[in-house]
Design a protein around this nucleic acid. Structure first.
Lengths: 240, 240, 240, 240
DNA sequence: CATGAATGAGAATTCATTCAT
DNA sequence: TATGAATGAATTCTCATTCAT
């Protein structure tokens, strides 16, 4: 086999794998893990039943494959990007929250459901062993929030007495619960605004309000100063 | 049949029903809804399989029966009691939180799992109809929190600009997520303390800390004033 | 117990029995024997499940009870009446046919279905023993047709060479099959006319149209004579 | 896979399908549709229970498969053959009748029962949809009779005022009812003769008896003439 | 006589997984 | 590598019947 052929072959394999993952993701999210048979997945992916098992070994591993891909291709890359490009603590939290919610609620909350069902519940049923491959990915993801918090405290943006663990729960718990209720009542419509509504009381509880200069506040103050100077200019002009 | 006999008969029925509910609750929570067969439930309850269906009609209704009982016998009574006996807002929230967590995490988080799995996930799969019987119970339960918040605002304990919906998400979302992670790492040990750790930043974000600045709404007001002044300045300039 | 009380009691029993039979008849005919549970029958009759078994012992006997009643209260009385009051052979057949069809097709062909299903098919499954109670009733019913035919022949209204067994098949087979197809396409509408359409060719084949030739039996006789003569001829030839 | 392997594979599949159909046919006919479990069918066919559903999807479809095969492989082919090879109207009806009865009463009236139970009764319960696949097959089959009748009328063999619908009922109704009673009393013994006994009065009602020359009659007359000539020859010989 | 709770065998059907081709 | 026929255990649920009250 030439190198070219080899490459093309590998590409086909990967395409197939992706196809199966896509089909399974959609079906699991739509109908639930148990209500989705491997037969349906195979049919939706346009492959035979045997092929699904060729690629993933079992239905459980297929689910793990979905989550693995989600962490590697969606959750973690953008989280890292946010941490690297946004520096202001408030903005970081906001971007992170929007990213988290957008990622989980895409495709009619496909991944939200998946994570809820499988990681939240079936996981311990399946056995801890199976989760082990996911743990580091999740740890890495959560680590991004931890870093934002740590650095926020260092800069004095956040209270210095915040504990990281409760904070994670506050952040992710509120977002996921809120996202769920919002989806239930309004679908994806206005989700970003709702995230802001959720963040408001959270931020209020986190930031160090002995320092009266949140970014919004600083901006306001700058505007007020501009306004004052402008008024003075106007006065001067009129006085002339 | 004498009245005595009738009463004894009814008692036996209720005892049996309770037995089935108990068995099913434990099994559902331990192994998950799907992994628990009606056969196992019957065996655990010490009745025949047919009897399970005699009492509950279907596995789904059995699950609804469990949740129904949980709301009616655990969640709502104590929530009402707290609201009636504790008057201080902060204490109310704390008691409510402790009650919620204790109720859900009892018996190795039996009910937490049940609610997560079934209400959070299967629910939409099963169809809205089936949930309808649960909705009012849930509404009533959540209503207790709403009342605490409403009265807290009236008394000036809580910021007046809090919205009820995000607040629910903040409260229940944080508690349930936090309860889950805590259970995962430490089991029930030290749960009450952890609840306090979760409540701390929440409370910080909710209560009226009398500093009338830095609030988003206040900022907005200030910005609006700036805006007005700027407009006036511009008008004046243009008037020239 | 007074005689009065005794009588009233017996009446109530009979009323209950009738109620169960009515309910079962309707349900069996509507949904089929197997698709109708004794529980549904009990509910429809407004009695408890146990009561059904008190009165009929088993589901099978209940079915036999229905048929028994149908023969005794509907089929046979009117058949006897027709034979007693209508004397003309053609009219007798017509009245009998109309009666048969009307009885079977009443209540959306309730009894037609019952007879088809149970007597036609399940019967041998159930075992001959169970049928034994029905046999004499059926025999009596069919006997009315036999009598009409016999007397018709005696009077010269019908061909003398008609055999009774095929005739029954012709009569009942055509009527029931025709009734079924007619019900299927048009419901009960115009059923009486259709019975006449069915009877026309039947009558044509039965009545004595005074042309003593061309009948199969006559042909046979003639052929037998030919045969005899041929044999005789051959014998004679061989004798030579 | 080589073509050979492919062919062998397909053959095995078809053989298996046939095996399941055979087993199911026999069991349904013997014990009835409801009394035959899919487990029994699988066991009788020597396959696993899952395989039955792999091939037929459901017990209902299995039944439809049986009827489908019966129409396609037995009823229709021979009916078409009769219409194509036998031209005389009387003979056509007779052959058709014999064919119908023979087909239905083979294997202890296996198919008669099947058709009675399922098509006659369960059908409307099951719902019209399921029958739709059978309807055209039945229509085609009945069409053969219609054609024989139509052409019989054109040739003047049959009365010109016959209606096709009642005629079908007369024909099939009489045959099936008669077949049933005959089977009940005598089994298959003498069935063909009985069919003739049933056809006699039917034919009497159908044929155009203004033309005294049915084929049988013509044949008889020819035989009579032969006989006469033979007798005369014998006389002559003897006279010599 | 009447009830209806209790039974447990049995039904149809599904499904993840295997393996010969 | 890919297929898809085959499996058979497991599942939910139904039902006629019994029997203590």
């Amino acid at each position: 086999m030439t190198d070219n052929a080899r490459r093309r072959s590998r590409e086909r394999l990967e395409e197939r794998e992706r196809g199966i993952l896509d089909a399974a993701t959609k079906l699991f999210a739509t109908a639930g893990f148990h209500a989705t048979s491997t037969r349906k997945i195979a049919a939706a992916a346009g492959v035979s039943e045997g092929t699904v098992f060729h690629y993933f070994g079992s239905k459980n591993e297929l689910m793990l494959g979905i989550l693995d891909r989600f962490y590697n291709e969606v959750l973690n890359p953008r989280a890292a990007e946010i941490l690297d490009t946004v520096m202001d603590t408030r903005s970081r939290l906001r971007e992170f929250a929007l990213h988290h919610v957008a990622a989980l609620s895409a495709d009619s909350a496909l991944m939200l459901r998946l994570l809820q069902v499988y990681v939240g519940v079936e996981l311990e049923v399946v056995g801890q062993d199976q989760l082990s491959s996911l743990r580091p990915l999740n740890r890495r993801y959560v680590g991004h929030l931890d870093r934002a918090v740590r650095e926020g405290i260092e800069r004095g943006d956040l209270r210095s007495n915040l504990q990281v663990r409760p904070l994670r729960d506050l952040f992710f718990g509120t977002l996921e619960y809120g996202m769920r209720t919002h989806l239930y009542h309004h679908g994806n419509e206005g989700m970003a605004d709702y995230v802001d509504a959720l963040l408001a009381p959270i931020w209020e509880g986190l930031h160090d309000n002995d320092r009266p200069n949140s970014d919004a506040e600083l901006l306001t103050e700058r505007l007020e100063k501009v306004s004052l100077r402008l008024e003075r200019s106007v006065d001067t002009l009129e006085g002339n």
